[in-house]
Structures are given as C-alpha cells and as structure tokens.
C-alpha cells in the first residue's frame, strides 16, 4: 500500500456518486411528498384555514344579523346557500366565521401548551433528580383528572368566554405535552453525544439549545399536532355546553348546540357544523399521523 493512499483516507471511492446532502427536515419533507393521503388532508386544512381567514371578505352576510322572517330554512333558500339557523342567520357566513373561532380554539391552546409544557418537560428531563420528580408528579396530579371534566371544571370556574375556554384547554394539554417532552429529553440526555458536549465544556443552556432541542422538538411536534383535533373537539364541546364562546359569536360547537332545536325539522342544518368539526378534526388527525410516519424513519 502506498503512502499516498494513506492520506487519501476519504472513505468514499472517487467514482462513487454521493447522494445530495439533505438535512433531517428536508428528508421529512421529501418523504411527505410521496404520501398522497397526507397531502390531500393537508390541502383540506389549508382550504379551511384560508376560508376562515378570508371569512370577512367572502362571507355573503353578516354572521350575526338575523332575518327573523326566514328561520330554519333549508340550503338553497333564496340567497342563503346553506340555509339559515334558528334566528334566521346565514349558515354559510356563520360557518365561515365560526371556522375562525374553532380553528383558534384548536390551535392556540396547543401552541401555548407546547411552549409551557415543552419547556417544563425539557427542564425536568434534563435536570433529572428532584426537579424531575417535582415537575412530573405535579403534572401527574393534573393528568389524573379526565381531560374533558378538567376543561369543563376550569372554564366553569373561570367563567365563560373564548379566552377562558382557551386557557382551560391549555391547562388540560400541558401535562401530556410535558410528559412527551420529558421522556424524549431523558432519552436523549443519556446519549453519548450529550456526554461529549459536556466533556467539551458546554454549559447546560448551550447543550440544551444545541443538542437537546433539535432532537426533542420532533416527537413533541408530532404529539402536539395530534392534539389539535382534540382541542377543536374539546373547544366545540365547551361551546356546546355554553362554557366556551358566548353567543352571538359564531362557533361550530355553539352552532351545533343552538341548532339542536331544529334537529327534527331541518336535520341537515344541524349536521353542517357537525360535519365541519368532523372534517377539520379528522384532517388534523390524519396529517399528524402522516407527519409521524414521515418523521419516524431513522436515518
């Protein structure tokens, strides 16, 4: 063997074509590209979100304006494409506007809970010992309540209103997200590259930022995305019970509740907000599953 070949230690033979450099998230994106089911439901979500955002522009009527003469009219009645509700308000406009509240109820609590629960979980996982015990046992206490009951109890105590409803949902989601973050962190913390970072003299904060977060974010993100549909459902549930959004603000859950009266005369009307909740929550759920599959592949 020649000395030259010794310095040419580059382990790839020169003829080999190297695959392109691809970061983790880029490879996740690439895998998602071929997952048509996920792409379909992702576009459904996109459409719903765009419609909700554009509601003020595209809604044909004011969602709160009642036309007392036309109450509980079927879809296609005059200008009311999807009919009217029990107070004669345009269903389409209410559904579009309601999407804003419902999506907000779905996404905002999860975001907030991810921020708080994730931080707590990473802290608990990385510190270990007593800190871990303290944080996690506190979470367990909260977690011990059934989530629906807890949400109802909290917003019941705080009083109605969209803000309080979201706060209640946030509190409900924090423990489970915290738990996911904690277990992911604990797993990563024991790996050699974290030890190596410590051996390089890295401070706790810098190790968490550079080495822990990148590895914990994935699982937490997947879990959080699966919570969005739960959050939409729970939010609608709260509104349905009169604990979330207050009338006359349009909200799918609230609509479902108020339309109950007409369930025998116009069952289709009643089904509309239900369908909206169903489709949205299903889409979020399936996209979350697709994400999990795309992100799960190990190297």
């Amino acid at each position: 063997m020649s000395v030259a070949s010794l310095s040419d230690l580059s382990a790839a033979p020169p003829t080999e074509k190297l695959p392109p450099v691809r970061g983790y998230w880029a490879s996740v994106g690439n895998r998602l590209r071929y997952d048509y089911l996920t792409i379909f439901f992702l576009s459904v979500i996109a459409i719903i979100v765009v419609l909700a955002i554009l509601a003020p522009l595209i809604a044909p009527f004011d969602p709160t304006k009642s036309h007392m003469a036309y109450r509980l009219k079927p879809p296609g009645f005059r200008n009311f494409m999807l009919g009217t509700d029990e107070l004669g308000r345009d269903m389409l406009s209410r559904l579009l506007w309601g999407g804003r509240t419902s999506l907000l109820m779905g996404i905002f609590p999860v975001l907030l809970a991810t921020l708080v629960g994730g931080s707590l979980g990473v802290a608990a996982g990385f510190m270990g010992g007593r800190t871990n015990t303290f944080i996690m046992r506190t979470m367990d206490v909260v977690f011990a309540f059934p989530s629906v009951l807890l949400a109802v109890a909290i917003s019941g105590t705080l009083g109605g209103g969209a803000k309080n409803g979201m706060l209640a949902l946030t509190l409900v989601f924090i423990p489970s997200i915290c738990r996911v973050a904690e277990s992911a962190t604990t797993q990563v913390r024991g790996l050699d590259f974290v030890e190596a970072a410590r051996a390089s003299g890295g401070s706790t904060l810098s190790i968490v930022r550079t080495h822990i977060l990148g590895n914990v974010l994935g699982p937490v993100f997947i879990f959080a995305s699966s919570l969005i549909s739960v959050s939409i459902l729970l939010g609608s549930g709260l509104s349905f019970l009169g604990l979330g959004v207050e009338p006359p603000t349009p909200d799918w859950g609230l609509m479902l509740s108020t339309l109950r009266a007409g369930i025998y005369t116009q069952p289709l009307l009643c089904a509309l907000p239900g369908a909206a909740i169903f489709i949205t929550s299903l889409s979020f759920n399936l996209v979350s599953d697709g994400l999990r599959q795309a992100m799960d592949v190990k190297a």
């Binding site: 063997m1 382990a11 790839a12 033979p13």
Partner: peptide
C-alpha cells in the same frame, strides 16, 4: 508499523 488497511469502505448497496 502501518497496518495495510483496505482503503475506502464497502459500496452503497442501493447503487
């Protein structure tokens, strides 16, 4: 002594 290592590494079996 320098060990007479085989240079490089085994090929990528996807190619």
């Amino acid at each position: 002594q320098i060990i007479e290592a085989i240079p490089g590494s085994p090929p990528d079996m996807r190619v």
